[in-house]
Design a protein around this nucleic acid. Sequence first.
DNA 1: GCCAACGTTGGC
DNA 2: GCCAACGTTGGC
Length: 134
Amino acid sequence: MNYWLVKSEPGSYSWDEFVKDKTTDWTGVRNYGARNNLQAMKKGDLVFFYHSLEGLKIMGIGKVVKESFYDPTTENPAWVAVTLKAEKKLKNPVALKDLKADHRLKDMALIKNTRLSVQPVKPSEWEIIMQYAG
DNA sequence: GCCAACGTTGGC
DNA sequence: GCCAACGTTGGC
């Protein structure tokens, strides 16, 4: 099983909306690096749901319930989507500044490549973040 | 195939 | 609101 992180601006799609929807199709990715990560997701993989721009926190965990398929929001077959299910809310959302303060996480894409909207998370990084989440 | 120009993302 | 980082586009 692999771990991932996706970003969403709460102004356009928030964790609360995700919980209300129960599942959502992760469409609209238009970046090749992020697309490659979407394609690599397998059923059962877990995904941190991060609020960018406002909040700047990891809010909860989603689960991949459908592997990549052509993104129906575009005609261009280069782009794909996956279906995510809202799995678990973090007891304590983990803020970006806490991640930045932990040198063990300094290589995370969230910190090193701030613009990548779908990114892999190492198992060791996942463990550390889960400890912060309580 | 290189690189300048431009657009977008996202933290501060 | 600003700006750094980075991806994409297009001229040559």
